[in-house]
């Protein structure tokens, strides 16, 4: 029977993903409930230099696996290193962020460790000292409470859902020797979109457009820019070729949980609602007062988005 909580952090070029702080904060909260230790692992070159950044989120111990083999993420090398560390620590629970690479790594790791994995969780609680994980299924149409047999138990948490809290403490740093085999996949190139583009799954605010835009996203883009928001799209907008696949929100696109979701000219097909229903506040702007999106929204505006959006942009500018 394992003991303690183990958090796998994710970094790229010296910066942690936000979900790593969310995972650590939740790990600290659960470690306090369970009265056990919290260990975090950082993998990649420069890991040791990054360790102090984690102190304020409350780990008792930070493992650093600093090796050129880990420069680029490869499933093979990262699984080898993290599996080795998990086995050595023998924790009860492993927490990882369910980013794209977090999903890739956690699924492989769970198979390597023969561990039950609750993917893309939105809540964790402890009842009678047992972990209960809440996770969406059917694209969020249903929530499922699951328990995991055996240890380690694994959970991948949905980005942008868990609260970040700061509980600084002094941290023990431990270097671990990497024993990764040669990775069989080779990252030859990274093509990143402009650095200021906000990733949908991590965005605080999303402004999304659908059929009602007729393909004109000018106002949506302008509003996003002044709100510091990401731009999303319905399946129709993507199928019509107005937006890229990577912008699609829905059951067959990205599942998002921003603080504010502004749906413009989106009728609210069940498959779209599945992808954004966990947003904290939902605003719907639509010409059709009968559009199903209004049933899922907190605030509704019946109107032509080509008139309403410019007016909203003017109002928001007044706030700044």
């Amino acid at each position: 029977m394992g003991q303690g909580i183990f958090v796998i952090t994710e970094q790229r070029e010296g910066a942690f993903r936000k979900v790593s702080y969310e995972a650590l904060s939740e790990g600290r909260r659960l470690a306090d409930v369970k009265k056990c230790g919290l260990t975090a692992i950082i993998a990649g070159p420069g890991a040791e230099k990054m360790a102090p950044t984690l102190e304020k989120y409350g780990p008792d111990k930070v493992l650093v696996a600093d090796d050129p083999l880990l420069t680029e993420y490869t499933t093979d090398a990262y699984t080898d290193v993290v599996a080795g560390a998990v086995k050595a620590q023998n924790p009860e629970l492993v927490i990882i962020g369910a980013s794209i690479l977090g999903k890739d790594l956690s699924a492989r790791l769970a198979a390597r460790l023969d561990a039950g994995l609750a993917m893309d969780c939105v809540a964790i609680r402890v009842e009678n000292s047992e972990f209960i994980f809440t996770r969406p299924m059917y694209g969020g149409k249903i929530l499922s409470d699951v328990k995991i047999d055996g240890t380690p138990k694994m959970v991948a948490i949905r980005p942008n859902v868990f609260t970040i809290s700061e509980t600084p403490r002094s941290v023990v740093l431990e270097k671990i020797t990497v024993s990764a085999g040669q990775a069989r996949t080779n990252v030859v190139e990274r093509k990143l979109e402009s650095a200021d583009k906000i990733e949908l799954t991590e965005a605080d605010i999303i402004v999304s457009g659908g059929r009602g835009t007729g393909g004109n996203f000018t106002h949506i883009e302008e509003l996003s820019k002044i709100l510091g928001a990401a731009v999303g799209a319905s399946r129709t907008a993507v199928d019509e070729g107005w937006r890229r696949h990577s912008d699609q929100v829905g059951q067959t696109g990205k599942v998002v949980s921003p603080t504010l979701y502004i749906a413009c000219g989106i009728s609210g097909a069940i498959q779209h609602l599945a992808g954004m229903s966990t947003s904290k506040f939902i605003v719907a702007i639509n010409k059709d007062p009968e559009a199903p999106i209004f049933q899922k929204a907190d605030y509704g505006v019946v109107g032509d988005l080509f008139q309403v959006l410019p007016a909203i942009i003017d109002e928001v500018k007044k706030l700044k």
């Binding site: 249903i142 929530l143 047999d149 929204a297 907190d298 509704g300």
Partner: peptide, 21 residues
Amino acid sequence: NRKVKIAALKLPPTRKSVMMI
């Protein structure tokens, strides 16, 4: 023999009814 055992399914919490502006 599932390791991940479903304890309960529930519907997502419903929102308060929409406020039309």
